[in-house]
Design a protein around this nucleic acid. Structure first.
Length: 410
DNA sequence: TGTCCACTGGAAGGGAGGGCTT
DNA sequence: AAGCCCTCCCTTCCAGTGGACA
């Protein structure tokens, strides 16, 4: 360790933060401030499962960072504790953002409580029908009440996967020994409207809405965590109220409040400061925003990157806005230089929509009367995006390319 | 009022790629 | 090895459209 390059950082650590995990959004606290009503409500519905009765299906709504997942995780843990003696129920959690196909969800349910490795459903290869049967048979063989939580359930909508919901809701008709209750978690309040009527009627049994946290409530949450995470006297008085205020503006998102506090602490520690200040929080805010965009851009599929590059190139050429057609010709030039096949304009239109949804570009559809109707595309990401793209392996040929007609393209 | 532009966005389907089954 | 199945990415086709202009 004597000459390690890490030495200085290790020595500097622990001056401010006592326990970093507590500030992670994945950390599950023992206390969930300002959510006792919601916990009671859900617990009262699910309590029947402990006696072997089938609880009503529940839909939980609330914006991002309102504690939906944290509350369900908490309840899941409590349920398992309470069930330890009788073993009447099984709690299964699926995040539909991670697993978003029929197959993935069904096999996820079938595998989560399956302890026998030999009997696990392979993650691809079977027909969905077979996976469903296997899962159903497994569930029925357990003679328990299964509480299946589908987090981010709205992800299933655009994948026309409400079939899978229908099958899960109807599964009770085919079970002899077990019962299944579904808990859906969504941050889209209109989720139910988009559902097939046969799914809609079965799912609407109980609805619970998580309101956004107010500034004061966010402060309480942060104080609670800060007490455990930081050394005493590590944070300036105004830091927590500032984090809370910024997050409150952002739909009362507790996750965001925690991120701000954690990143602010990181920045302070890295600077070797002995106190976390409001200035650190402001830096953190900026850093989080830029990091999020940069990370998204880095993980974009190749053609999306080229589309984005085309938009940047047009912007740098002085066209602050451009139509789909303009952008597509630039796109074709670039793909040619890169030595790749270009995709159709129809496909590019979808890629633009995706970039729009990610907030990287702004591309509303506008009509120019006789001059047609098209998207007006404008870059809305910070400048860092350009650097990230330019550094991308995919774009290497652009740097060395010289246009025979003009001087250089880039 | 109707025309017409430059697309948009839905639908259907192909085919590659991953992996199981027989 | 041949035959399936599922998902993802993509193509092709095409009806539909907002609004400036004649």
């Amino acid at each position: 360790m004597e000459n390690s390059i890490f030495k200085q950082y290790l020595e500097r650590r622990n001056t401010l933060v006592k326990n970093r995990n507590i500030l992670q959004t994945s950390y599950n606290p023992d206390q969930l401030p300002h959510r006792s009503d919601e916990i009671d409500q859900i617990a009262s519905i699910l309590a029947g499962a402990l006696k072997g009765d089938k609880p009503s299906n529940i839909m939980i709504f609330g914006k991002a960072g309102t504690g939906k997942t944290a509350v369900m995780t908490f309840i899941g843990n409590e349920l398992q504790k309470a069930d330890a003696a009788t073993s009447n129920c099984e709690y299964i959690y699926i995040n539909c953002e991670v697993v978003d196909t029929h197959y993935g969800i069904l096999s996820g349910i079938g595998n989560q409580s399956q302890t026998d490795f030999e009997k696990r459903i392979p993650y691809t290869g079977w027909s969905t029908e077979k996976v469903y049967m296997e899962m159903k048979n497994y569930i029925d063989s357990q003679s328990k009440v299964f509480i299946i939580v589908l987090d981010e359930i709205d992800r299933l909508l655009n994948k026309n996967s409400d079939d899978v919901l229908y099958h899960l809701l109807a599964i009770n008709d085919f079970l002899k020994n077990s019962k299944v209750s579904l808990v859906g978690i969504s941050n889209n309040l209109k989720f139910m409207e988009f559902l097939d009527s046969r799914v809609h009627s079965r799912f609407g049994e109980e609805k619970i809405i998580f309101p956004p946290y107010k500034t004061k409530q966010l402060e309480d949450i942060l104080k609670e965590r800060a007490k455990l995470a930081f050394e005493p006297e590590a944070i300036e008085f105004g830091v927590i109220p500032l984090c809370a205020a910024i997050a409150a503006q952002d739909n009362g998102d507790a996750r965001r409040a925690l991120d701000l506090l954690r990143v602010a602490a990181d920045i302070a520690e890295r600077n070797g400061d002995t106190l976390i200040t409001e200035a650190h929080v402001k830096n953190a805010k900026n850093k989080i925003e830029v990091d999020a965009v940069v990370e998204t851009v880095k993980t974009l599929p190749p053609h999306s990157k080229i589309v984005l590059m085309s938009i940047i190139k047009n912007t740098e050429d002085g066209n602050k806005t451009m139509t789909t057609g303009d952008m597509y010709s630039t796109y074709k030039e670039i793909t040619e230089i890169l030595g790749l096949n270009c995709v159709s304009q129809r496909r590019v239109a979808d890629l633009i929509s995706e970039l729009d949804m990610l907030g990287i570009v702004h591309a509303p559809v506008r009509s120019f009367g006789r001059a047609g109707r098209t998207r007006v595309i404008e870059l809305s990401a910070p400048k860092d995006v350009h650097d990230v793209l330019e550094a991308d392996e995919l774009m290497i040929p652009l740097k060395t390319y010289r246009n025979p007609k003009q001087t250089t393209l880039m």
